[in-house]
Write a protein that binds this DNA or RNA. Sequence first.
DNA 1: GTGCGATGTATCGGTCCGATACATCGTGGC
DNA 2: GCCACGATGTATCGGACCGATACATCGCAC
Lengths: 212, 212
Amino acid sequence: MLELAILGLLQEAPMHGYELRKELLAKLGAIRAAISYGSLYPTLRRLQAAGWITEADETPATAEEVPALTSRRGRVVYEITAEGKERFAQLIAQTGPETYGDTGFGVHFAFFSRTDRATRLRILEGRRRTIEERREGLRDMLGRAAERLDAYTLELQRHGLEACEREVRWLEELIANERSGRAPTVPNDGTAGGPREDNSPPPPGETRTERP
Amino acid sequence: MLELAILGLLQEAPMHGYELRKELLAKLGAIRAAISYGSLYPTLRRLQAAGWITEADETPATAEEVPALTSRRGRVVYEITAEGKERFAQLIAQTGPETYGDTGFGVHFAFFSRTDRATRLRILEGRRRTIEERREGLRDMLGRAAERLDAYTLELQRHGLEACEREVRWLEELIANERSGRAPTVPNDGTAGGPREDNSPPPPGETRTERP
DNA sequence: GTGCGATGTATCGGTCCGATACATCGTGGC
DNA sequence: GCCACGATGTATCGGACCGATACATCGCAC
């Protein structure tokens, strides 16, 4: 998952580790509370060894050429390679069971603007399926095994069930939106690259319910 | 986290690995989709090495004494020791940052019926604090950095924000309930003819010492 | 001039997951 | 009669990720 996220972010701009982590937190903040250096740096080294990213020189060209009086242990800026972009495209398009788990789905979703619509639909429907199954499991639990469990455990299940129902509804909305031909690759800054088959308004956007 | 859950479950009855996993899934189904044997069995061995659980003989005494014609690779039933109960009490009472994360909170909550009220309140309030901070982070993101992010990422944040608001409201309710001396809001009629020794969900309970 | 928080790179031990292997048991279909 | 198949059951391996920790530089407030 980290691999996919790093490759995706480096497609927007070259970055060094610290920056990458902040962007990761900004983009995935809704689904992951933290990204550890203990997984980030090893992953970067792995990606570099695979040839998917490379170190970029950081000399801004305008800077005076200060030679290494201090050994200048500076930041290491990474940029994605052509093979890296290919790898990203492959990872983003291939779906499996792990694509529908909480983290996997979140990461894939965060890069939907670089995903073609067919894949987006496949992922949204797979996720819906997964959540529906989880929902049914919780319903069974609350029905059949209720008397075996204490009130707190029951309340936890009830809350989980509600979250499932809510997410299914959210997914329905997103799926309907994709099908109806909206669902844009949003024209953000000029950094092109993603698949692009239409324009027009964002996902559900303003179709909010309640919230006084 | 697994350690805590295993110790908690074995306090209700001795169990073997397979059974333990099913009970774990039943109790934690709302917060964990799966429990892997790859973590369960090593943890069991660790707990046994620490003296917190032991293997129990499984011979039902009524069975005919069939000697090992087949090597009888049977199930291994574990039961908790006195030290294990002590360990559980210590783990359940001690709160730290990891107590307020998604998994940690869920596991602690699932064993609230074995937790004294002061600790329950401490955990609920710590969790609320954590979620409130996550919520503020997402709000900032949606406010300040909105134009840097594409529509899908934004939608993900929005959905995450809503989930945070929802959970905070849920926690408020639970906290109010704890303070007022009631059990969690259970929609079902009580009357659970508890098969277990420890079927007192309601609040005024203190930590108990069962097993005469 | 010095303490301190942000920036920045890096490793280590440990937890947990997913895949895999393998063996037993009961049941229903042929 | 028998056998395929799914449930039960124990177990290991490699890999992903986390949390703690270490250390070094920079700007700035006091």
